[in-house]
Nucleic acid binder design. Structure first.
Lengths: 70, 70
DNA sequence: TATATTTATACCCGATCAGGTATAATAAAA
DNA sequence: TTTTATTATACCTGATCGGGTATAAATATA
């Protein structure tokens, strides 16, 4: 479970949507939403963006996680 | 040409690397680097991250570009 | 408890990506 | 200019993603 999957899961729940609801609204398959929330690494960029757009977000390069305790 | 492709192209050049150099260092095919820099939308998430990691970055959800002039 | 809802996992298959190669176009250097 | 290096585009193929479906597990509700 990575940051992306956590982000999606949290946003989805905060909107009171099921995975099925989200897949429908985003126009992707239910299986894709599941793979995403389960932290699958090999996903199509554009499909992920279809989902993130529902949350007003998109994928972009961000500095790699620095260790919090350093 | 989107933000991601611009980011990669700029970072690559700032390091004085050719697309071929980058593809080798990242462990992806040359064709992939080209598709990426050309702004292809349908790319594999993990492959993109292989490249971004060389720049100390990774893909993550960012707020969708708000219009600068509003 | 039992029942319904939601989520997780596994399989099959068409569509498509990534790699490889070749060729063309562009840019840089001599 | 010619030559070289780098980038862009097109084709072919194996591998794999995403959709659909089914089933199981987990969670919530009565």
């Amino acid at each position: 479970m990575n940051k992306l999957s956590q982000f999606v899961k949290e946003r989805r729940k905060s909107l009171g949507l099921t995975q099925e609801d989200l897949s429908f609204k985003a126009g992707v398959g239910l299986r894709f939403v599941r793979d995403l929330e389960q932290g699958k690494e090999s996903l199509m960029l554009d499909k992920v963006n279809q989902i993130l757009s529902l949350f007003g977000h998109e994928l972009g390069p961000i500095p790699t996680e620095r260790d919090e305790n350093s």
